[in-house]
Nucleic acid binder design. Structure first.
Lengths: 212, 212
DNA sequence: GAATGACTAACGAACGTTAGGTAAAAACTG
DNA sequence: CAGTTTTTACCTAACGTTCGTTAGTCATTC
């Protein structure tokens, strides 16, 4: 009976989320006012409070959506077929693809992961960091078991891997001309594998950087 | 008779800078109010405006001091003796040492380098990023010329190097139990050299991530 | 006639900043 | 070197603005 397209019902909500993504990713949480968000969305203030509890709720829901997108991509790569090196390549390639498609989302995510501990709304940053860490670590542990990788414990290697990946996404965030192609993703993993394999020094490891 | 200690002349200014470092590094620029800063320093508000033009001036002067400390350390390592691998080790070891000694400073620096473009007071972030980038790149270019390194252009390799270094400093910022020892610094450079050397793929490079 | 989705208008609190004043030390002057 | 002026280092008290938030109202739709 009713229109079978409730997709376009929350037009105002979508506009608010888009405006919020744009502003939050560029200016941060405290640097963005609710007045700027509603202006960008072309609605009035009470409309925002109709769809969202408050500013923090808006930020949290926005962030959770975007972060889930990234996690799902990584998860898909982790559970994909092939050896661990191929899966590592897919992890980076997927993240790079997201950064190319939706650089605002990636900037928002990096902002949260790398911001000072008490900045912005209180969300469990360490949990988020660990979630992503664990996914990548699983692949690296597989690689160590199959002797595709060596040269350190899984935690140290994961930290290096994420460092390389994130620094490139950060470069893309800062300079949008930067192109993060799948070829670069492959090259970085080759780099990583070589470093983890041919190292002829005693293994070094951090004291549980993101352990459980 | 009177206490002959004029060393404590700018006592209030120092207290303000210390309080500001503590708060800014933990909560960010917008997340910290002038009232919190003066409370932490145990002075009144006009005292802050006596020593600093305004909040932005306070932040800028604080940041510039701390960032210079880091740059000077890197510079010293860049200009030190030995092959480029030894110098790369000293760069990381120096940064790690600073992170161990003064984690607030490092957190403040990382915060500025990695925050979204329009957050906080307007300071030329790309210039700062480039300054540090150039210093490291010089050593890596030397390494490429002397065949101590290979496997990519100097810019790509520098980006990887900084990614590995920064991710570890970030880990320290998030979890202060993390120990960033000189041994770990050495291990990371070994990793880096192996990755840059034994890679058997065509060289890949980004489109000028932090070129001039 | 009850939700839904929007509006105008205002709220108190917190923000960065400043006007205006004071006690003591430092610098100058006859 | 005594007397005067200036500067230093702080204070109390308030300013105007912006912040996030909400009470109250009103069409439109089901």
């Amino acid at each position: 009976m009713a229109v079978p397209e409730p997709a376009t019902t929350n037009e105002a909500e979508t506009k608010l989320l888009n405006s919020a993504l744009n502003l939050f990713s560029q200016r941060g949480y405290e640097g963005t006012s609710i007045r700027e968000i509603i202006e960008g969305a072309g609605v009035t203030r009470p409309v925002l409070y109709y769809y969202f509890e408050n500013k923090e709720d808006l930020f949290r829901r926005l962030f959770e959506t975007k972060f889930s997108e990234l996690l799902e991509r990584i998860e898909a790569a982790v559970e994909s077929d092939g050896d661990s090196i191929a899966r590592l390549k897919r992890i980076i390639a997927g993240a790079f693809e997201l950064a190319e498609q939706n650089s605002d989302s990636v900037r928002l995510i990096l902002q949260v992961l790398f911001s000072p501990p008490q900045q912005g709304p209180s969300l469990d940053r360490n949990r988020l960091i660990r979630q992503r860490f664990k996914l990548v670590e699983r692949v690296i542990r597989d690689g160590l078991e199959n002797k595709e990788l060596s040269g350190g414990d899984s935690q140290s290697l994961t930290l290096v891997f994420l460092g390389v990946m994130d620094m490139h996404m950060m470069a893309k965030s800062n300079r949008s001309e930067t192109r993060l192609s799948p070829e670069i993703a492959d090259g970085l993993v080759q780099f990583f594998v070589a470093g983890a394999k041919y190292r002829d020094v005693p293994e070094t490891s951090l004291v549980s950087p993101y352990a459980e």
